[in-house]
Design a protein around this nucleic acid. Structure first.
Length: 419
DNA sequence: TCTGGGGTCCTAGGACCC
DNA sequence: TCTGGGGTCCTAGGACCC
């Protein structure tokens, strides 16, 4: 268990994408701004605080946001700038302590227990970080400080916007108890509703409910974790580097009939993205999962675990096609699809020339011709061209997918970036 | 007129092995 | 002779987070 003072910080940039837009364009400052989407479609990726006051939030369809806030200004994202400014903020954290756990482009945990003798207590460090980010990067950031990661994260949420909240050891209960359970990490709308059925609305309510009752309601893992968190009995350490456990890509399609040509071309595009990223990481995976979403947001997954890991574009495409056919086979004819996704998990380190040596000859999932060696050679050539001339320079399906790119590719690249 | 794209973790049932 | 129990892996689905 952590001991001593409040030595864990959670620092979280406020309305990050929207704040960057306001930084880049002074005309947007003080006004309701939505990044992404539009009055006629698409989704809002981020909303400024001025827009949030109207109920606009990230993930919301553009037409709904426009209805909630008629003066809302929709802007296109500046994705390269988001990455660059996020990195600049992380560099400031790195000046304080090497123990930084970046958990997304715009937030991180810091363990400052070794820094307090240099920079003073957590409250002073939090103030300094906020001042430096404001002065050197130009962005508002909120900071929470506490004994544990989870509590620090709740504190930063309470601090928003543009604030600092320090939970001194010994004051945890009075801080936590009145807060809504939805602030607990892992409590989303479904869990919140289930807890409300038990009469649990605040973290204090949750802490006083027997673990057994919570576990019966939510399952063992979620229940016991939640109970522990509510009692502030949480000892997760800072993790400075982490390997991704899966690599995936998806594409929303609107509503369309699942005809073979559409499926083939979308899957080929997705497989190429996934396989390329796996190869760039020097990894490959044995489990391939396909997700098909239907009108009405219902979705189905089909997966297959292979004897050997794959990272080859054509092989992944073929396996994904079979899985998609399997998923569609169970659906009534005439069912329309709205999204296709491919994910590869069960990842292992792979040296380039060792991939896919041999699948079982009688394995029905064994890819057809050309051989694995030929496929790897093609992928290797394309990778070389891409690395030299950029991602759009080469591929199996040049320029075919233009109409399906509803989301800017820059946003995809941001989302897939290794933090 | 139902909403993007990237992930993580958990559960439950079944197969299979010892 | 068809009964026990535990462990591991696989598959499908779901909740959640940024």
């Amino acid at each position: 268990m952590p001991t001593g003072g409040a030595t864990i910080l959670h620092a979280d940039l406020d309305a990050f994408y929207a704040s960057v837009e306001q930084l880049l364009n002074p005309a947007l400052r003080g006004r309701p701004v939505a990044v992404g989407g539009g009055p006629t479609g698409g989704v809002v990726l981020a909303a400024s605080y001025e827009a949030k006051r109207f109920g606009v939030s990230g993930g919301m369809p553009g037409w709904r946001a426009a209805r909630l806030c008629p003066e809302l200004l929709f802007v296109r994202g500046h994705f390269a700038e988001y990455q660059q400014l996020g990195d600049a903020v992380m560099a400031i954290f790195g000046d304080v302590t090497p123990l930084v756990e970046r958990i997304s482009i715009d937030e991180a945990f810091l363990d400052v227990s070794g820094a307090t003798h240099l920079f003073g207590p957590a409250a002073a460090i939090g103030r300094d970080i906020r001042a430096r980010v404001r002065a050197e990067v130009g962005l508002p950031i909120s900071v929470g400080a506490a004994r544990t990661k989870h509590l620090a994260k709740i504190a930063s949420q309470v601090a928003k916007p543009d604030g600092l909240v320090v939970v001194e050891p010994g004051t945890e209960r009075e801080f936590l108890d009145p807060l809504p359970v939805s602030l607990v990490w892992g409590v989303g709308p479904v869990t919140q509703a289930r807890l409300a059925d038990l009469g649990v609305r605040t973290i204090g309510d949750l802490a006083q409910t027997p673990s057994r009752a919570v576990e019966r309601l939510l399952g063992h893992a979620v229940g016991s974790k939640l109970s522990a968190m509510a009692r502030d009995d949480d000892a997760r350490r800072i993790v400075t580097a982490r390997h991704a456990g899966s690599v995936g890509a998806q594409s929303a399609l609107g509503r369309r009939a699942p005809d073979p040509e559409t499926i083939r071309s979308v899957l080929a595009h997705l497989a190429e993205r996934v396989a390329r990223r796996l190869r760039d990481k020097g990894r490959a995976g044995r489990t391939v999962t396909v997700r098909v979403r239907f009108a009405g947001l219902r979705s189905v997954t089909r997966s297959r675990t292979l004897a050997q890991p794959v990272a080859t574009t054509l092989t992944l495409t073929e396996i994904a096609e079979r899985l998609t056919q399997a998923a569609l086979a169970d659906q009534p004819s005439g069912t329309e699809i709205t999204l296709l996704a491919i994910s590869v998990s069960n990842l292992a380190e792979q040296r380039v020339l060792q991939l896919e040596l041999d699948l079982e000859p009688d394995d029905p999932w064994r890819p057809g011709s050309p051989t694995g060696a030929a496929r790897r050679a093609v992928d290797g050539s394309l990778d070389t061209i891409r690395h030299r001339f950029g991602n759009d320079a080469a591929g199996y399906l040049p320029a075919l997918m233009g109409d399906l790119r509803s989301v800017p590719d820059a946003f995809r690249e941001l989302a897939e970036h290794d933090l």
